[in-house]
């Protein structure tokens, strides 16, 4: 383990009841680093993110966040420590307005109203689509706008690590390109680390410096993104080449 890793996951086992889904997962993210987590359907990617976010209790292993253990900390407190998950399926508060959804992101913040409203304006600058619809119900947004709102809500928590689960799911390539460009811009200004789970492997490897491959619950590779792109096996399995 690197001594100054932001997030270090060590030999993590996660199970749903009797059914074990993750086996001895090791994963590390440095401060400000962008990392991709790739793998086929059902490999356990979402399960891993949910365990880190505090929604699932691991069966064994350790999750170390900024030098301190994160095991057993409930989700509502994990986010206060600077880890945010933009969940699979977006999970917006459909009956609330866009502005309310974004404001909910700042629920646990203690750095004052001024900082929160400055961030809100920043998110609206980042996603002008949202600014135009700030009083609209989130459930009435298009798929792409919903994803922007979900990312915006995640950014409003002021994360040091932003975890994104399948942000491209169900979106047109144009919408994905736009969102990725905005995400890259957010990363440039804020410098937060990101963990990107994606089916759109090409996109993920473009954003990320390093990537892990998770297959049937085990990490089978971890390497520089450009090395993975050039790997024939990865090309065949994940890029359809």
């Amino acid at each position: 383990m690197t001594p100054d890793a932001l997030l270090a996951i060590e030999r993590l086992d996660v199970a749903y009841g009797e059914i074990q889904v993750l086996w001895e997962v090791d994963l590390e993210i440095a401060r400000g680093e962008v990392v991709a987590l790739l793998g086929p359907n059902g490999a356990g990617k979402t399960t891993l993110l949910r365990a880190v976010a505090g929604l699932l209790r691991p069966r064994a292993g350790r999750i170390v966040w900024d030098g301190a253990p994160l095991d057993g900390v409930p989700a509502s407190r994990v986010v206060a420590r600077g880890l945010a998950l933009v969940p699979e399926g977006r999970r917006l508060f459909a009956g609330m307005t866009v502005a309310e959804n974004l404001t909910m992101g700042a629920y646990r913040r203690t750095d004052g109203r001024a900082a929160v409203s400055a961030d809100l304006e920043w998110v609206f600058e980042l996603f002008p689509e949202l600014a135009a619809r700030r009083r609209q119900q989130a459930g009435a947004l298009s798929g792409g706008e919903q994803q922007m709102c979900a990312i915006g809500r995640g950014l409003m928590t002021k994360p040091r690590l932003l975890m994104l689960d399948e942000l491209s799911l169900g979106l047109s390539p144009v919408a994905v390109d736009r969102i990725v460009a905005m995400l890259a811009a957010a990363h440039r200004t804020r410098g937060m680390a990101m963990l990107i789970v994606e089916q759109d492997v090409r996109m993920a490897l473009e954003l990320a410096r390093r990537a892990y491959i998770l297959e049937t619950g085990r990490i089978t590779r971890g390497d520089e993104a450009r090395r993975l792109i050039d790997d024939p096996r990865v090309k065949k399995a994940y890029l359809g080449l």
Binding site: L85, L92, F93, M96, Y107
Partner: peptide, 20 residues
């Protein structure tokens, strides 16, 4: 707002820090 958020989606509410 936290009450409404918890009503709409418990997990999503927890993910933004609501102690449900």
């Amino acid at each position: 707002r936290a009450i409404r958020a918890a009503a709409l989606d418990k997990e999503a509410a927890e993910l933004v820090g609501v102690d449900t």
